[in-house]
């Protein structure tokens, strides 16, 4: 079952208005650990401590500050900060449409399923139009006091809203300072052949979170008081630059 309704709004562009309800689309299932004091196994809490006096500080004695440089702050009143919050609105405004696949996955954040709201007319027409034209909508909206940028997508019979990161939240490849390195056409050709040989259809259902199971095993073993073996992992030997072609040829030979 899809997650519960987290927000209601309506998609708007030109003379189209489609009321929708947002539902969580992904739920991660992870084992949760607590931090304990090793000596007596008491569960620890996080506590805000004054760095100067080294004493716990209650919320009533806390202030908010923006750091200008080391140790210098501008104080800010949380009430004043609230006034910068965007005005609340129910509109998911579509600003334009782009061809599907144009958005680099680096921009993608959380995703929501959109359920047609009771009065939703034109929901299915919008799904069909997006699918037939192979496009997605770029939209903005305000939800829970935050402004979002997102992509409106169609999948099956459903609309989805994918939150996008703002452009200045993505670190540019340029800042990584990567060097160019000359490669021979032969190396590139063999490398491409190798990749093509190793290509299979994407079948996400065949991958399981084995780690989670192993973790459960580990906990069961420990609960029974069994000893845990700690294997020594061996580091992998890197391929030397002058052995690259050789390694590629051997790889291709192995799979071909």
């Amino acid at each position: 079952m899809a997650g519960g309704t987290i927000w209601k709004g309506y998609i708007h562009f030109a003379d189209t208005d489609v009321p929708v309800k947002l539902h969580t689309a992904v739920k991660e299932d992870r084992m949760q650990f607590h931090l304990l004091h090793q000596r007596d196994r008491v569960k620890l809490h996080q506590q805000m401590i004054c760095a100067y006096e080294k004493v716990p500080v209650s919320p009533a004695e806390q202030a908010k500050g923006f750091e200008l440089e080391d140790g210098k702050y501008i104080l800010i009143d949380p009430l004043e900060l609230e006034q910068t919050e965007p005005e609340s609105s129910r509109m998911i405004e579509v600003h334009g449409f782009v061809k599907t696949g144009q958005i680099d996955p680096i921009f993608l954040e959380r995703v929501y399923y959109l359920e047609p709201d009771t009065l939703s007319k034109g929901y299915s027409a919008l799904v069909e139009a997006l699918k037939e034209m192979k496009v997605e909508g770029i939209c903005t909206w305000t939800m829970r006091k935050r402004s979002y940028l997102g992509a409106l997508q169609a999948s099956g019979k459903l609309l989805r809203l994918h939150i996008l990161r703002y452009a200045d939240e993505v670190i540019s490849v340029k800042s990584l300072d990567l060097q160019k390195f000359p490669l021979s056409e032969k190396e590139l050709q063999i490398g491409s052949d190798l990749i093509n040989q190793l290509t299979v259809p994407f079948e996400p259902q065949k991958f399981e979170n084995e780690h989670q199971k192993k973790l459960q095993n580990l906990i069961d073993k420990k609960a029974r008081g069994e000893k845990i073996d700690i294997p020594r992992p061996r580091p992998m030997k890197r391929t030397a630059p002058n052995k690259l072609l050789q390694a590629l040829e051997a790889s291709l030979h192995k799979v071909a």
């Binding site: 004091h37 008491v42 996080q46 506590q47 401590i49 006096e53 750091e67 140790g71």
Partner: peptide, 25 residues
């Protein structure tokens, strides 16, 4: 933003705290 101690404007740091012994661990 940083959380500060309103008394001396010292920044607050998050530490793990034992609720029984009332000490920073």
């Amino acid at each position: 933003f940083h959380l500060l101690h309103s008394k001396d404007y010292s920044p607050l740091v998050r530490k793990m705290f034992c609720p029984e012994e009332e000490v920073i661990i």
